[in-house]
Simulated scan of single mutants.
Amino acid sequence: NLSDWIYCLTRTDPNAPKKQVGISVILADLSTPGITVRRIDLISGYSPFCETFFDNVRVPAANLVGKENEGWTIAKAILGHERSSIGRSIARQPGSAQREVVARARKHLGAGEGAIPDPLLRDEIATLGMLEEAFHLTLARIQQSAESGTPGPEGSITKIVGTELKQMRFELGMKVAGIQGLGWEGPGFDEDDLQYTRDWLRSRASTIEGGSSEIQKNIVSKRVLGLPEGKK
């Protein structure tokens, strides 16, 4: 609900031979009569999403982006950038997720500066750190191969791995907090723990937004691995 404009994928040729053909991208000013934007409140308490309604909306033909009926090519490029940016934004600095969980373990388990007493928990944290490092190396390779400017299907890999690593990080962070991870508001919880709980809830949407993990895996299997499509 902070944007002034919206781009729309519109069906401009209902008789096109393929469903991806006959789609055009057109821009619309959100102040145009007939457009209604309503905020969607999420379980985390945040509201970064909206639903938009169009009631007999008319916009100038000059707002067309690219060529008529060729909007799907533009849409794929937009989605590629979105998926890549989601994965990269989660990455942060190498080792940051592991350090974050270690700090929470020291805070809530009373480990101080010594070793975390639970060997199974140490193993989980070490696994997170190794996966995080491997992800950063993969990002570097993809970045080198994507210097043309348009993300390829590899962006789906960063989306899958990055969002699952994010969820793994928050799950571990909540695990070490114990009952202190159950706070929503009120006394008995500090601001860091309350914020972490909301961020953990928000992380559940990461594998859905920008195309769910199931969709990304289909893209990887078809366009990266060259596997045949399954029967529909």
Rank of each mutant, 00 (worst) to 15 (best):
F189K: 01
N63D: 14
P187M: 03
E133A: 12
T158P: 06
A77N: 12
R38M: 06
I157R: 00
A62Y: 04
G211R: 02
V21L: 13
V25W: 07
R83A: 01
E132K: 05
N69F: 01
N69H: 12
S148G: 15
I160A: 02
E185F: 14
T32D: 05
G34T: 06
T10V: 15
V59I: 15
S203D: 01
A75Q: 11
R141L: 12
A205I: 05
A111L: 11
L109E: 05
S212F: 01
I157K: 00
E51A: 12
W200A: 13
F54H: 06
P14W: 08
M168F: 15
G155F: 03
S85T: 08
I43K: 15
A28M: 09
V224K: 13
L2S: 14
G181Y: 04
L182V: 00
K67Q: 14
E229W: 05
E70N: 14
T163A: 09
D193C: 06
L172C: 07
K232P: 14
S24L: 04
P14Y: 07
K232N: 13
E209Q: 14
I125E: 00
F54P: 04
G155P: 08
A77P: 11
E164K: 06
I74Q: 05
D190Y: 10
E82D: 15
G183C: 01
R83P: 01
G129F: 08
I86D: 00
S24Q: 08
P14F: 06
A77R: 15
E147S: 14
S221I: 00
E209L: 13
D118A: 04
L79D: 13
V176Y: 02
E113I: 12
D29E: 11
C8Q: 12
D41I: 09
L9V: 10
G110S: 11
N218Q: 14
G22E: 04
L194H: 06
V57A: 09
G178R: 04
P48M: 08
A177L: 13
F53L: 11
I179A: 12
D4L: 08
R106V: 04
Q180Y: 15
S156V: 01
N63F: 10
P60C: 08
P151N: 10
G173V: 07
I208F: 10
F189T: 01
R39V: 07
R169C: 06
G112Y: 12
E70Q: 14
N56K: 15
P17V: 03
E68G: 13
C50Q: 13
